[in-house]
Every structure is written in C-alpha cells, then in structure tokens.
Design a protein around this nucleic acid. Sequence first.
DNA 1: ACCTGAACACCGTTCAAGT
DNA 2: ACCTGAACACCGTTCAAGT
Lengths: 233, 233
Amino acid sequence: MPTTEKGATAKRGAGRPRTAVLSRERIVEAALDLIDEVGAETFSVNLLAARLGVRPSSLYNHIAGKDDLLAAVQEVITDAIDSTMFETQPWANAVAGWARSYREAFIGHPHAIPLFATSPVAGAIRTMEMYERVVHGFERAGWPLQRIIPAIVALECFILGSAMDAVAPPDLFHPGDAAEHVPTLAAAFAAQDRGNGARTESDIAFQTGLAAMIAGLADRDPTPEQRQAPTRK
Amino acid sequence: MPTTEKGATAKRGAGRPRTAVLSRERIVEAALDLIDEVGAETFSVNLLAARLGVRPSSLYNHIAGKDDLLAAVQEVITDAIDSTMFETQPWANAVAGWARSYREAFIGHPHAIPLFATSPVAGAIRTMEMYERVVHGFERAGWPLQRIIPAIVALECFILGSAMDAVAPPDLFHPGDAAEHVPTLAAAFAAQDRGNGARTESDIAFQTGLAAMIAGLADRDPTPEQRQAPTRK
DNA sequence: ACCTGAACACCGTTCAAGT
DNA sequence: ACCTGAACACCGTTCAAGT
C-alpha cells in the first residue's frame, strides 16, 4: 500500500511524467521487499519494474544495472547491524550482542544472505565504520593487534553460516526413511535439545557455537579483562 | 580433453545416434566442471549443452530439470568429505580433521558453495552415512545425546561460512581510501597475522575459529576424554 | 530529465518430428 | 530410446522516440 500515492493506478503514456514516479531510493526499497517476498533467485529486474508499475527500461534512469542495485540493497541490510555495544560493554558481552545483531540483520532478510555473502563491500563507508568500532573494542579489551582481524573474520564466518542455517528448511538432515540405516543419527536427532521456549533449533545451535567460540577465543588469548571477569556462567 | 572420444567433432543430424552421446553421469560431471569454470550465476543449461556439443533439449532425456541436475552435482561434492577419522582418532582431532576436509571439499568447488548452502539434501543416502559416523564419534567421546546435533550444526555453520570466506575476493574489508576515517581498522588490517607459509588470511581465520570452537565446546561440556587429554597445545 | 516501446541476445523448458 | 529443431515465456540491457 505504500507504493500508491496519487493516481498511480492510471496508465501512463510515453514521455516524461510531470512528477517523477521513480527514485533510486524507492527502487532500492522495493527491490529489498521483492527479494524478501520471492527470494533471490526468483527476483528479477522485470519483476521489480512490474511491481513498481513501470517499464523495465525506466529503472535504468536511476540505477546502473542489476549489480549496482543489489549493492545498494546490501548497504540497507548492513546498516541494521548494531555495533555500539563495543563502546559500552565488556568484550565478551559486546561480541555476543554484536554477533546476535549481525545474524538478525540477515535473518530479517533471509533470501538476501546467499546473495551478499560473497560479494565485496566496495566503498560502503558505513560498513567500514562498523568495523572500526569492533576492532577498537577488541583493542581496548587488550587484544594484540595482529590477532584481531582473524578473530573477527572467524566470528563473521560463523555468523553468516548461522544466518544461512536459520533460513534453510528445518530438519534439513532428518533421517526420514533412512533411519534404520543410520540409528545413531536418528537417536541424536530425536533426543536433541530443543530448548524450552520459542527458540528454533538454529537459534540453539547459534547460541551453542557463539558461546563456545567466545570462550575459546578468550581462553586462547587471555586478556586482563577476560581473566578477571569470565562472563560465561 | 576427456570429452572427445571418437569423432565427436562432426555435426550430428537429427534422430537417435547409433551410440548415445550423453549419459546422466557425463552431464553431471560436465556441469560441475562448468560451474567451477564460470561460476554458479553464469552457469546455464544452454551453456552446458553447448559445452557438451549438444542441443539444450537433449539433456532432458537424462535429467528432470536444472534442480535435479544441481542436486546430483551436490552429492558429488559432499562425497569428497572424509569422516573416517571419527572411527580412529580422539574427539578433538577427529572434529578438526573432519572440519578441514569438509571445508576443503567446498573450497575445491568454490562457485558451488552459495548454490548448495541452503538447499536440502533430500534422499542423499551417502550424506546421511557421513552424519552417522560423526554423531557416533561424539557419542563415543562421552557427549550427552541431546547436545550432539546443536554442536554439529554450529560447526557446520562455521565451516560453510569459512568456505564462503575462502572464496570471497581477498581483502574484502580493506579500508582503502577510507583509511583516515577508520584508523584503528586500518592499523589492525596492516598488523594482522598473515602466518609464515602459504596460508591465506582465510586459512588463518579458519584455524583460529576452529581451535576456539573446539576448545569452547570441550570446555563447556567436558568429557572424560577431553579432561584427560586436552589436545590444544 | 524521465518515461515508453521496440529490439537484442540470452534463459529454462516443452514437444513434435526424425531415426 | 535419444537426438534435433522450432517454439514458448521468460531474462537483463540498450536506445531511439516521445514529452
């Protein structure tokens, strides 16, 4: 309903309209909505144009092409990641909060994950600023400078992998008919800890892995802060 | 060179050839080769047909469609994952070896990772057998049954995320022109531990994260085996 | 400046017609 | 049974023509 403002339903003839019906912002917004609805592989420029009530060729007055459009969509998503906790909280808490926010930003747009996990962040200034805060948080916690980037990259690998997992069809590896051939797997599957509340299996695996990774990172490279205040219960 | 056997260069007329020029196996093999070469998004059925010296419609005598073809390609890749170490080695060593093999199987076919990370493994019997071995290895190491699946899922999230990272363009987050605005990030980037040998930044991040995760998992849920023989140096 | 409309070379898939 | 060839409804993109 937000796309209809004033008589956008009437057919437009050729030529420049009195007031522009498109803008880069409106296009990027609609693209993200469409990706969320139909998925990255179903998404197409033609489909987006139809959704905007416009000819496909019209979009090229505002975007350089599909790649340019997808890069803009990516920035919208990463803008939702909260990294301010690195300025206020102890290291382990900040990492945990940032990781959760990071994962949730991509879970909010599930279909976009495989689209962006491998594409570069060329010139995304706000994304850089996020990393600045994160690195600074590690530094203040006493981490030796040369080990910060590998630790952050490792965390991101886990976070993005977890976001993909959260989006995958549930019970991806359910033994099903083959249960007799793989009895131990079937038993572990049936017995698995599913938590007590609204947490999904993917949420539980994420918490398990995140806690393990933070503990392992802190343990392997202990800092004064970590030694005096181990945050795991 | 393995695709040319006997005069496959000559043009074929219409009608059934004396000996079949295609087979499901040959098609799947060629599809994986083509994905490796041109990437998942450039890959197309038409392109594959051209590579096989055949009309696109010919493929549909052997495959049900593109989805069926990609599922078959996926099984070829996962077959390369070695999980036998769970039958011979202590838990931490087995997990580390399996994880490395898992990551390498996907790194061997980089362009296939985003293609398969979210798609189901419907009826892939050999994949199930791998999980049977892995779960059994956890069980023998003393893991409580209900915690095994979440731990394995967490490991897989990290492994697949790491494989994607290994494939991404290097220095994805290099500050570049923005170095002045993000001085701490720039310093950490310049100082980062790049190892001494042929290891890439992605390899180092993987080893960092894997060691942390294994240590964290063992520490959080200690088993007799882990307590008596901590394998981290 | 910003939209339409026609065109281009693609894409995955179907199906009748050949042998 | 297994390939060709023509056809279908798509895809991303370009560009002249309108206003």
